[in-house]
Structures are given as structure tokens and as C-alpha cells.
Simulated assay, not measured.
Amino acid sequence: MILRTPMPGRRAIRAQRKRHEDAAGWLLRNRETGQPAAEKAAFRAWLDEAPENRRAYEAAEQLMGEARTAIASDPALADFEVKPRSAAKPVLGTLLTLAVAGTLFIALDGPMRLRADTMSGTGEMPVFTLTDGSTVQLNASSAVAYDYTAGHRTVRLLRGQAYFEVARDATRPFTVEAGSTRVTALGTAFDVRLGDTETDVTVTHNAVLIALEGADQAPLRVTQGERAVYQRSTETRQIGPSDGLTALAWRRGQLVVDNAPLSHVVEEMNRHFSGRIVIANGELARRRVSGTLAIADTNAVLIHLEQALRVTTNRIGPLIIIR
């Protein structure tokens, strides 16, 4: 015998939708300063009108709090500003036009497009050849710019990650600039990752010299099978052994992590996700993850994280909050 739960009718659906809309409206009004006493009384009356109203308001309050905390902890979202609207229609029209144009410019990655010579999208990992015969593969959501002259070859990694196989040219050194880190090839193949908090360099053939802009330290020589990490916040650098297959798993669409912080996994997921994934708080961001993940399959990775870390995920349009 199959028992079926009756589906709510249209009237019930409309009532539920209105209840959630009212809850969101009251939540916003209650956060305003100088709220009139009559409005406060009306809110209390609405709250006591039905248990469903109170549950809807508590759910809206929880979700708003988590979204604000997550957005505040994410630099890309915390820096976003909303322009106040003017009451004057001509000024409002101008502001709306500028706001729409600015939003589209940022949404289409306009600032980076002005700086980069080659970019990759969220679903792309292109391989291309430079004018000297060197080849480059970009990870998803990455960007580079080139500066080739008669005396040097410089590639600036503006965002993301790239793997380089350098063509020999004794008269022109080949250097990759990633933030304040300068990586000079010594006839080599190597990988550079410009992360949110650190820069990683993994050498798969021969050696490189790593120098830090403005630092008094001598250049660091990193050889085949080694990985160097520069922590920007502490201005420290570390070098150790590296498994090339693991370090370059991204070229196969994988992320291999061994006791890595959740923040690192989410950073890599965001390269392949067209929206934005954020973590609700710093303690959760430091939770550790291990495994081999198909990093471009956002849903599969989220399921893995939910099972491994006992976390939950909430979607708000293009935003995913892990809590």
C-alpha cells in the first residue's frame, strides 16, 4: 500500500509565499533605526497571529544572519557596494544607468579583461603557445599578461594558476611574476598558483629561482620534485618535496587534498563555479579535508563535504553558503 502526502493547493502555496515575503519585509524594517512604536506593535501582532508566522520570521532571521556573516568574511563580496537611490527621477535614471553599466562591467570581468592578454572561464583550462615556443596551460578562472622584449620574457600571472613548459633561449630569461613573487626558469617546466593567501610553485623538470620583490633574502632555488610556498601575510617561505601527479591533478580536472583546510577546497571550487561559494565562519573554514575530488562537479564536491564534515549548504541564487 502506497501512502501519498497530499500536495498543498494553490491557496496554501500563495499563503506560504506571502508569509515568507512578510517575514522578509519585517526583518528589514526591524533593522531600521527609529522604528515607530505603532510599527513595532504591528509586528508583534503579526508574529502572534499564527505559529507559522513566527517560524517564517525565525527562518528568515537565521538565513539573513548566515548570509551576512559569510559575505562579510569573503573579500570579493564584502567589497561590493550598493549605491543609494535618489528621489529625483533624472538623477535616479542616471544612477541606475551607471549602476547597470558598472555591474555588467564587473560581472563580465571587465577590469581583468583590460589587464590580461589571455583568460580562462569557469569551464576552461586552455593550452596555448607563446611567440617563443613556450607553452602555457591555464587553470579555470585564470589570467595572464605577457611582456616580451629583446632582453627578457616576462609573464604576469594576474589570477589563478598556470603550468609552464619553457622554450630554451639563452639570451632572454623567462620569468613569471605572481604578485610579489618572481619565478625565473632555468630551462624547466613548473606550475605557479596565485592563491588567496599564498603563492605556490611546483617544479616538474629542472629548476627555478624564486625571488620576492623588495625582500633582502637571496633567491631560493627549487628543483625538480620540490614545491615552494610563500605565505603573504607572514612573508615566510617554505620548501619541501612534491608529488608532481598530485600537484598537477588540476590538469586532469581533479583536486587531490590531504588534510587541507576547507577554505582551500572552496577557493579551488570557485574557479569552476559561475556563482560564489562562501563559508559561514572562520572556524569552519579551518576544518580539514582529504580526498580526490572532481573539482568541476560542484554538486558532487558539496555532497562529499556534507558527508565528510557534517556541514550543510544553502543556495541563495548564485550564492552557496556552507555552514
Rank of each mutant, 00 (worst) to 15 (best):
R4M: 14
R10K: 07
Q16D: 15
K18R: 14
E21C: 08
L28A: 15
A41W: 01
R44C: 11
W46G: 09
Y57R: 10
E58N: 08
E58F: 03
A59M: 12
L63C: 07
P75T: 01
E81Q: 13
E81T: 07
K83D: 14
K83G: 10
R85Q: 14
R85K: 12
V91W: 12
L108Y: 02
M112S: 06
M112W: 00
A116C: 03
D117F: 09
T118Q: 15
P126I: 00
F128A: 01
T131N: 14
V136T: 04
S141C: 12
V144C: 06
Y146V: 08
H152W: 02
T154M: 08
A162L: 01
Y163D: 15
Y163T: 12
E165K: 10
D169G: 02
T171C: 13
P173G: 04
T175R: 05
V183W: 03
L186R: 06
L186E: 01
T188C: 04
F190N: 00
D191P: 03
T197I: 12
N206E: 13
L209F: 02
A215S: 15
T223L: 11
Q224K: 10
G225K: 05
E226Q: 11
E226N: 08
A228N: 05
Y230N: 07
Y230W: 14
T234D: 14
E235M: 13
Q238P: 05
L245K: 09
L248G: 04
G253Q: 06
Q254T: 04
Q254M: 12
L262W: 00
H264V: 13
V265T: 08
V266I: 09
E267V: 10
N270E: 00
R271S: 04
R271I: 03
H272K: 07
S274R: 14
G275R: 04
R276I: 09
R276E: 07
A280R: 09
R286I: 05
R288Q: 13
A294H: 09
A294V: 09
L302S: 07
H304A: 15
L305Q: 05
E306R: 14
Q307W: 09
I316V: 12
